[in-house]
């Protein structure tokens, strides 16, 4: 399987800092917002955001939670491999807050649709925004766009974008795999 590194450790660090500054600039107070990492891989990105926000503005307290979307997916019984649920942890009230959904890759938009539905089970947020590290643009199957995107890339369906993290795969990087033979 052919692969190509799209972002390395240093580039990811720069992007994360930029995304954090965008958030800090956008909101007057961290009380207005909360972050929800989408299980499983969005949680890893939201963990990094939390770390960087703490470092960049140590006096502010940002809220972070985890959201599992398994039971809201639209492909239950339609995919070959059964879905395995993960934990949901939202230790705060989302009512009247801006909720920023965090995921590593934005592709068809279906995961985010499920995430928005799952989110509404916890209350009525003031608004919902989306933050992603990689935006595979022109590949949407639903009218969904990211408010904050780390990097926008062009890709074909036979390609797979994988965001790898130090704590999981041993190195921070974004890799583009080509799943087609001779592709």
């Amino acid at each position: 399987m052919k692969s190509r590194t799209l972002l390395d450790k240093e580039q990811i660090k720069l992007i994360l800092d930029r995304l954090c500054f965008q958030i800090i600039e956008e909101f007057d107070s961290p009380d207005e917002l909360c972050f929800l990492g989408l299980q499983p891989r969005g949680v890893l990105l939201s963990g990094r955001l939390q770390e960087r926000l703490k470092a960049l503005s140590p006096e502010e307290e940002y809220r972070f939670g985890e959201l599992d979307i398994t039971f809201h997916r639209d492909d239950f019984r339609r995919r070959e491999k059964p879905l395995t649920p993960q934990s949901t942890r939202i230790p705060f009230n989302i009512e009247n807050k801006t909720v920023i959904l965090v995921d590593d890759v934005l592709y068809t938009g279906r995961t985010i649709r499920a995430g928005m539905d799952a989110l509404m089970d916890f209350g009525r947020p003031k608004s919902v925004q989306l933050l992603v590290l990689v935006d595979r643009r022109f590949k949407r199957q639903l009218p969904i766009e990211a408010n904050y995107a780390g990097k926008r890339i062009d890709s074909i369906d036979a390609e797979k974008v994988r965001v790898e993290w130090l704590e999981q795969e041993g190195e921070d990087k974004v890799v583009l795999y080509n799943t087609e033979e001779n592709g």
Binding site: H72, Q86, T88
Partner: peptide, 15 residues
């Protein structure tokens, strides 16, 4: 996971 679901404000999923 379902125990967590039935303790949410909206105790229902569309699966």
């Amino acid at each position: 996971h379902f125990k967590e679901v039935i303790n949410r404000p909206i105790r229902k999923v569309p699966s």
